[in-house]
Design a protein around this nucleic acid. Structure first.
Lengths: 213, 213
DNA sequence: TTCTGTGAACGGATTCACAGCA
DNA sequence: TGCTGTGAATCCGTTCACAGAA
């Protein structure tokens, strides 16, 4: 399982892991690439090929053991541990993210929150006291942080991202509506519902009642 | 500009449009594919090729007129009008979406909100009174709705999506952590920060300090 | 027989490279 | 000279199809 696994493959693995968790919850213990594919709208060949980058997890004639495959995927993806995150930008959006209950159960924890506004700095949100964004660099030096979440206005996002990168952060979840510049080796995922809407309207205009994806 | 423009191309157009808006705000009136590409981390050739699907908007030796190109893109994408949306699922996440100020300025308006819980139904949120989700089908029949936003728990998401589709909705922004099944011709965009995080951790584990995207 | 793992074939998107216009 | 528009070449991910293990 050497170098050069396509990034698209990596992005599909968590989808598989989630589907397996659902099967596990239903008590299933074997699943074929066909069944998994039907559920996810992916071809069986793609699932088999994707998994084959990492090993031979299936049994010919039977399929994949659900528990086993789940464990393997968790290990591959690093989901068998917890990850610490900082959030920058405690506005409406940032608060919603902090309040969101979906990260914790998956092992993702926000351990510090930052904002630039004097009103917000010092405020307590859940267990966190909002710190001034000017302290971000220093905090990154002193605490172990894996991931940065950026929820500041677009105008400030690149600056914040530069600080994260300078502080050694190599994974960023960016909610700001910009295409950030980062050095290679730093991974960014963009959460941008407006862009999503704006690309769907193309099809609504009737340009093509084309296939869904 | 006939059939079969790749979907990836369509997804990049809003990115270009946004970058052009920024240039416009700065008073620039001409931009080359090179400059635009630098800003967005896209190759100039790709920008030219993408745009060439729709027409010849540039001037050789000069570049693209910012205003002109913006207008063209808006027309192509249907951003020169407003779009009406319904939201289903007025929990924490749904409230955050309703509160979010980023949709309106881009012409996207939530005109009805629905929930299943008796406590929430009837509540007023901004200008909207939350309706019972059982009325969703009827509302889709009586009001013009372009897009559905789904922010219900995963267990209920497929059912809600089926109702939207049955009601003629062809574009869905789905925040629920499932891979929905929709007939071809219905477009879905997934907003799923947990999946985004779970794919980045692969690289953090050191599998490859590979290039960022 | 069933379903995996995988090399080979395919298809489609990206990049190249250059002709042509301003 | 500078930069677009675009066929051709390339690259890369997906699908095919089948050998082989249970």
């Amino acid at each position: 399982m050497p170098l050069e696994i396509p990034e698209v493959v990596i992005e599909r693995l968590p989808v598989y892991a989630r589907a397996l968790a659902a099967l596990q919850a239903r008590g299933l213990d074997v699943v074929s690439s066909q069944e998994l594919g039907d559920q996810l709208g992916v071809t069986p060949a793609q699932i088999r090929k994707d998994l084959s980058y990492f090993g031979r997890f299936g049994k010919q004639g039977r399929g994949y053991n659900v528990n086993r495959l789940m464990e393997e995927l968790h290990q591959i993806l690093g989901l068998d541990r917890t990850w610490s995150m900082v959030l920058i930008g405690v506005g409406q959006l940032g608060r919603a993210i902090l309040q969101y209950g979906g990260f914790g159960p998956q092992g993702f924890h926000v351990i510090e929150a930052f904002d630039a506004s004097a009103e917000t700095v010092g405020e307590m949100i859940g267990p966190l006291t909002v710190r001034d964004v000017s302290e971000l660099g220093a905090v990154l030096r002193h605490r172990h942080v894996d991931i940065g979440i950026v929820s500041v206005p677009g105008e400030n996002a690149q600056r914040v991202i530069d600080t994260l990168v300078a502080g050694g952060i190599r994974a960023i979840l960016n909610y700001a509506p910009i295409a950030p510049q980062v050095p290679s080796g730093v991974h960014v995922r963009q959460i941008d519902p407006v862009l999503s809407l704006q690309s769907m309207t193309y099809y609504l205009k009737g340009n093509t009642a084309s296939a869904a994806k």
